[in-house]
Amino acid sequence: MKTAFTLFRIAYGAWFLFWGLAPFLGIKPPATTQPDAVALLEANRAAFPMQLASASFIVGGAALIWKRTAPLGVAILAPTVVWIFLFHVTLTADYPWAAFWLVGLIILGFRMRKAYRPLVTWKD
């Protein structure tokens, strides 16, 4: 089970690292046909949000690949993964794809929950 989790963590991080680097490599994401989704993606590509998402993909994905920094990677990717989830649920109606990314992040976060304990523990 430990090996399966490690492979999942590395694959999840590599996926985000790849798509963070994709704009620099000239690789375009798969096209969507829903007009509202296309409009939102074009607006984000023309403005700052897509560059911010790419930066979080690169940093968060790279952090997930190494065990020591994996909890930081989950924290960095969390807002973007929630955005991806909401985008696919509300605009593309691709529920399995949306659920996969959110559930994957929840599994990673739950598995690394001990690393987050100091954030919510108060000691004098």
Results as ranks from 00 to 15, higher is better:
Arg111Gln: 12
Gly109Ile: 12
Leu25Gly: 03
Tyr116Asn: 05
Lys123Trp: 07
Gly26Thr: 07
Gly109Val: 12
Leu72His: 10
Leu77Gln: 06
Pro35Leu: 03
Ala22Gly: 04
Leu102Trp: 00
Ile10Met: 14
Ser54Gly: 13
Phe85Arg: 02
Arg113His: 14
Leu102Val: 02
Asp124Ala: 14
Thr92Glu: 13
Gln34Met: 15
Ser56Tyr: 09
Ile107Lys: 03
Phe87Gly: 00
Leu86Ser: 07
Arg45Ala: 15
Thr6Met: 12
Val120Thr: 14
Ala37Arg: 13
Ile58Arg: 02
Phe110Tyr: 14
Ala4Glu: 08
Ala11Cys: 11
Ala37Phe: 11
Thr3Lys: 14
Tyr95Pro: 00
Gln34Ala: 15
Gly61His: 06
Arg117Cys: 01
Ala4Val: 14
Lys114Arg: 08
Trp15Pro: 01
Val89Asn: 01
Val81Ser: 01
Lys28Tyr: 05
Val38Ala: 10
Ala78Phe: 06
Phe16Val: 12
Gly73Val: 13
Thr32Met: 05
Ala14Tyr: 05
Val59Ser: 04
Ala39Lys: 14
Gln51Asn: 15
Arg113Thr: 09
Ile106Trp: 11
Ala14Leu: 15
Pro30His: 09
Thr121Ala: 06
Phe85Met: 06
Met1Val: 07
Pro23Val: 11
Ala63Trp: 04
Ala46Asp: 03
Pro118His: 14
Ala63His: 11
Thr90Asp: 08
Trp66His: 08
Gly109Gln: 03
Leu25Glu: 07
Pro49Glu: 06
Tyr116Leu: 05
Ala55Phe: 09
Thr90Pro: 01
Ala98Asn: 04
Ala78Asp: 04
Asn44Ile: 07
Ala70Gly: 12
Ala55Tyr: 02
Tyr95Gln: 08
Ala75Ser: 12
Thr32His: 08
Pro118Gly: 07
Ala39Trp: 02
Leu64Glu: 03
Val82Gln: 00
Val120Ile: 15
His88Trp: 06
Pro30Ala: 15
Ala46Phe: 09
Val89Lys: 08
Pro71His: 05
Ala46Met: 09
Leu41Ser: 07
Trp122Asn: 11
Trp97Asp: 05
Asn44Glu: 09
Leu105Thr: 11
Gly73Gln: 06
Arg68Cys: 02
Gly61Val: 11
Leu91Cys: 04
Leu17His: 06
Lys123Phe: 09
Phe24Glu: 01
Phe18Glu: 07
Thr33Arg: 10
Phe110Cys: 12
Phe87Lys: 05
Gly26Glu: 13
Ser56Asn: 09
Val103Pro: 08
Thr69Gln: 05
Trp15Cys: 14
Val89Gln: 11
Tyr12Val: 01
Val120Ser: 12
Leu25Pro: 00
Leu52Asp: 09
Gly26Ser: 13
Pro35Cys: 10
Tyr12Asp: 03
Ala63Leu: 15
Ile84Asn: 15
Trp101Tyr: 13
Phe5Asp: 03
Pro71Glu: 00
Leu105Cys: 08
Pro23Arg: 09
Ala70Val: 11
Leu102Thr: 00
Lys28Ile: 04
Ala53Leu: 08
Ile65Val: 13
Gly104Asn: 13
Leu102Ile: 02
Leu40Asn: 06
Ala63Gln: 05
Thr92Asn: 10
Pro71Gly: 02
Pro118Met: 13
Ala46Val: 10
Phe48Lys: 06
Leu108Arg: 02
Leu72Thr: 10
Pro30Ile: 10
Ala99Gly: 00
Val74His: 04
